[in-house]
Design a protein around this nucleic acid. Sequence first.
DNA 1: CTGAAAGCGCTTACAG
DNA 2: CTGAAAGCGCTTACAG
Lengths: 334, 334
Amino acid sequence: MTTVLDVARRAGVSSATVSRVLNGQATVNAEARLRVLAAAAELGFQPNRMAQSLRSGRGRTVAMLVGDIEQNLYSALTKHVQAVLGQIGLDLLLYNLDHSPDRLRSFLAMAPSLGLRGLALATTDAIPAAFDPVLQGLQRGGLTLLSLGQRLDERGIPSIVHEEQAAGERAVRFLIESGRHPVLFAGRITGSAIGADRYRGYRAALAGAGLSLRRDLIFDTATAYRYSAGYDAVQRAIEAGTEFGAVQASSDEIALGAMAALHDHGRRVPEDVAVIGFGNIDWAAHTRPALTTLSVHHDAVAAALRSALENTEAGTEVPMLVSIGRSLIRRASA
Amino acid sequence: MTTVLDVARRAGVSSATVSRVLNGQATVNAEARLRVLAAAAELGFQPNRMAQSLRSGRGRTVAMLVGDIEQNLYSALTKHVQAVLGQIGLDLLLYNLDHSPDRLRSFLAMAPSLGLRGLALATTDAIPAAFDPVLQGLQRGGLTLLSLGQRLDERGIPSIVHEEQAAGERAVRFLIESGRHPVLFAGRITGSAIGADRYRGYRAALAGAGLSLRRDLIFDTATAYRYSAGYDAVQRAIEAGTEFGAVQASSDEIALGAMAALHDHGRRVPEDVAVIGFGNIDWAAHTRPALTTLSVHHDAVAAALRSALENTEAGTEVPMLVSIGRSLIRRASA
DNA sequence: CTGAAAGCGCTTACAG
DNA sequence: CTGAAAGCGCTTACAG
């Protein structure tokens, strides 16, 4: 591997000057500067990341902790985050939480030794308050800590989120105004602030329409935002003899699960039951009937993350809360 | 941050001894060993990764380059790989290729400066031979280079793959023996060795059944393994008036796209047309009709990757080719 | 079995 | 504007 010293020798300067040129900080004689640049290019010099990070105390890696990389919500977000980090020369360390607080604990235990530039918590699961001290310690160490998807701003963590309650309300109001009710709500996920927010939107829409809340139409689930949660909810409702004209799911996976259950019980979508999902995952447009759902804007999240990283760099303030709107994407299912 | 020196002081030994105890290499006095372990635990010592890697010349990061993390094939594999790396104390650096040779080039240019322990190429796209020298250079540097999914063993890169041709043949034979033919083949992907292998399986099944190959039943696609490829293929076949009793797709996404097109043209699955996918992605069981497909075994791939890493470590040989079987998972679509 | 010392490849006060 | 020197936190011959 070529080192700064190789470049320095070739350019006839000291390694300090090479470093100064390459990092563009201090002023360097224009001519020497050119010679260094030329030498670096000729040798194909790439500064050793580990040495750079160790010495400067600032790594070039951003860790992203995701709830479950296999869910499209997280993989699509990861894709955008990686693209944005690549643009500013940072690496992405991916850590899959698998929805487990234990895995979060393990990561946080080793995080300080990683020399991270940033840490993005991308999960809808609750973050136990017991982790707050470690998180704060990391922040004090100069790392850019961000919550993606979940509001943690009141715990001192800048958060980039989508609107949930307003979006949920919009969708359910649409169903009611189209005459598709009663509306079954599938997925007030246990332990997820977001699931609760979406449910609040459902309640608000009902209240707005002067309809009363019925317990038999609301299905909690502990199995996160997965297909089976939607399947089970609809199956239980049908077996209980509950009548409903629509399903508002709190994720697209849940919506697809619900559609499968409706199909298996001979109900047609949207003729008998309208279905709306949440999150516009990649196959939502390709299933039949195509899924009506609430949009997601991973590009906006990634851009906000980039700003936060750049602001920290520049010493300017990072906003404590960035909220991104969602719109209803109408397809065939509702 | 606590350092080896802090631990050393507390244990009353030198930092060298601390290092020896923690790395479990050389023999250390049992008593001193215990004191070091106790001190490290009390201080919650975690060795600085960057210093460790810089000094030893062997990083603790494995980079995984994926075709497109948003596709379930890659995200599911990534999940398993991350789990396995975590078990052996290695970090996962994720790099999304986005099916672009330029991004691969960019990564390889900076790879040497990253001090990687391993590099997993997980893409079905062709790897230009022009990159072979860089790849070989990386291998010589002691990094464990692996191809996941695509055979590159003849170019000196140990490969962990699934059987493709035999699996494709198995599925198509099943269709033919069930009387579901002619069989349309959707997805002989341009520039993908794997797409070509699956297509060879199709041809072999036809030959085995004494059926002739018909050009009008074969649909190439440049759009990779995505939904639209399947939709377009079926739509073009129907518009051309081609009759067919089954679709063998070369990915599950293509199969879902094909099912959408069949639906939009009033063909019922499986009554009018049977459909088989490839890869058993996560929603394959949840769509309606549920998708019959060929299995995938990400756990086996991840386990083989782990062995390769451990073998390199131990100085024992890494097999040049590990091939994992696929079975036909029968669901409702065929 | 163990400590003192060197050094991985950088960056950054420091002195000029 | 620039070089010599120190040092980030480890590991590893080396000598004992």
